[in-house]
Structures are given as structure tokens and as C-alpha cells.
């Protein structure tokens, strides 16, 4: 469990990191928190010839909480985002999800951008990105482009990042609806493991408790986490009773195509998706109603 030989360089600016990526392309990997990359190298599952360390680039660690959006650099630490009350007030799903991400020790080092770029189908932050419709800013030496999360993820551990691109920023939309609630839940064998299935939801209601806006999604039950915007739309305009929530949740579950592994069969994953979506929708709705 020792990594094969590689070259290491610590970039001091985004420009330098992108230039290095342009130079080494396919053979290079960006090192952020290293919580997935380093073990995979130790297992010799990855053989990068260059590691480009972005941990000392201040521009990748900023956090900006604005009225309509929370913006952060890709190298913002998970622990810092989890502790940030301003973020929790605007995009509460992030804190809710982060409490399920690994353990305190891994969150101290792990980054938001690293988790998104790693794109584990069971990981929590990619699911939140799908549900909230986050935008990801991808930077290359001579170009910058922005992708919505729905276009960023392309498969298990796969994204649309090109070999010469570095994930630079993540923009999390803020819902300005006064009565907004959110909820994250997952089932794993043990706390801190990758989820067998995870679900996240955010709901806004009017003063009559009618749903005005809804978003939800499921992770761990397919090649990538998915949001269900069309099904969520069915909730809008209703007071959400058990039947409405149940219907939407089990339609979502039926649309999933999960895999089997030693911890869960496809049938169990689909079942858990139905249960968990029902629960997060219910709990997000209750939270929204409870806002004064």
C-alpha cells in the first residue's frame, strides 16, 4: 500500500495549477484534501505521474455568502463549511449533509471541491449539488466554463472535467422563499460510511402551508446522484400529506436503477430510496412550515 512513484508540485495560484494541468494533462491529478485520492494511490488503483497540490492557493479557499448564492472555492474545507452559520442559514442542506460525510477527522482535511470532482455515486455533497442545482466553475489555462451539476456528473467516479481543467468554484443557489425547509438522511451500515442510499430534499411553502417550490434527489442508487425536478414539480401547489409524499417518493424509487454489492441488493436500495425520500420530503416540509 505504497503509491507508485510520482512527481509532486505545489501550485501557488490557480493560473499555475491550470498551466501545470495543461502541461501534464492525463498524467496529472489535482491533490486537494487527499481523502480519496491518496488511499486510491496507495492501493495502486491510480497511477498519476504528477500530483498538483492546490492546498496553498488562497483563491480556492474563499467563501462568499450572498443574497442569492453561496460561492466557495473548490479547496474550501468540509469542516469550515459545516461550521459556517451564515452558510447554514442560506443553504442548510450543506451542513445537514456534511454531518454524514466521513468523520470529523476526514472533514478537517477533505474539501468540498474534492468530493464533487471525485464523484462517488454514494457521496453526500454531489447529491446536494444535484438537488440544489449547484453550478461548477471549471478553469483551464485559457478558458473558464460553468456547468450545472446536472451536466457535471457523467457516471460513477466520472465527471465532465477535462484533463486540463481544475474545478475552481462552486455556486450553491440560495432559496429566498421565507418559509424554506430542508432535510438530508441516509442509511449506511455504520455512521460515516458511504451511504447505501442517501436522500435530500428542500421545500418552500406559503403561509397556507402550500408547497411553492420543491427539490429532492437520491444518492447511492445509481451511477450518480440524481435529482427529480419533474416529480418535485408535482408537489407544488399542494399541502403535502402522507399520500402525496408517498406517491412521489415511490415513483422516484421506481425510476432508479441501482446496483447490487455485498452491503445491499438493488431491491433493497430501491426500497430504501422510497423510504428515505418520503422521510426527507416530510421532514423538509415540516421544517418549512415551522418557519415563522
Amino acid at each position: 500500500m505504497k503509491a507508485p512513484p510520482f512527481e509532486y508540485v505545489r501550485a501557488t495560484s490557480v493560473e499555475e495549477a491550470c498551466a501545470l494541468l495543461g502541461q501534464y494533462g492525463d498524467g496529472a491529478k489535482v491533490l486537494a484534501g487527499g481523502q480519496n485520492l491518496v488511499p486510491m494511490m496507495a492501493f495502486r488503483l491510480l497511477h498519476p505521474s504528477w500530483l498538483i497540490d492546490i492546498n496553498e492557493i488562497p483563491a480556492l479557499k474563499f467563501v462568499a455568502v450572498e443574497t442569492d448564492v453561496v460561492r466557495m472555492g473548490a479547496c474550501a474545507r468540509q469542516c469550515d463549511i459545516q461550521r459556517d452559520d451564515a452558510i447554514a442559514a442560506r443553504a442548510p442542506l450543506l451542513r445537514q449533509a456534511l454531518s454524514f460525510v466521513g468523520h470529523a477527522q476526514t472533514r478537517n482535511r477533505g474539501t468540498v471541491g474534492g468530493s464533487l470532482a471525485h464523484a462517488d455515486p454514494s457521496a453526500e455533497l454531489p447529491l446536494v449539488a444535484q438537488v440544489l442545482g449547484a453550478s461548477l466553475v471549471l478553469r483551464a489555462a485559457s478558458s473558464t466554463r460553468t456547468l450545472p451539476a446536472s451536466s457535471f456528473f457523467s457516471g460513477p467516479m466520472m465527471t465532465e472535467l477535462r484533463p486540463d481543467e481544475c474545478l475552481e468554484q462552486i455556486h450553491w443557489p440560495v432559496w429566498r422563499d421565507r418559509k424554506t425547509g430542508s432535510s438530508f438522511n441516509e442509511i449506511s451500515r455504520r455512521h460515516g460510511d458511504f451511504a447505501i442510499v442517501a436522500a435530500a430534499a428542500q421545500i418552500a411553502v406559503d403561509d397556507d402551508d402550500r408547497c411553492t417550490r420543491a427539490a429532492f434527489g437520491v444518492g447511492g442508487a445509481g451511477p450518480m446522484p440524481v435529482a427529480f425536478p419533474d416529480l418535485a414539480q408535482r408537489l407544488v401547489g399542494c399541502r403535502l400529506g402522507e399520500d402525496e409524499l408517498d406517491d412521489v417518493a415511490w415513483d422516484a424509487a421506481a425510476a432508479l436503477e441501482p446496483d447490487s454489492d455485498i452491503h445491499a441488493t438493488a431491491a433493497y436500495r430501491r426500497h430504501l430510496a422510497g423510504v428515505l425520500v418520503t422521510r426527507v420530503l416530510q421532514s423538509a416540509y415540516e421544517a418549512a412550515k415551522a418557519v415563522p
Binding site: 415511490w250 415513483d251 424509487a253 431491491a267 430501491r270 426500497h271
Partner: peptide
């Protein structure tokens, strides 16, 4: 148990 709505619960 868990068979309240078998049409929607493909287990």
C-alpha cells in the same frame, strides 16, 4: 410488513 403498496414497492 412493507407491503402496503405493492404496486409501488418493487421489492
Amino acid at each position: 410488513l412493507n407491503k402496503r403498496a405493492p404496486n409501488k414497492r418493487p421489492t
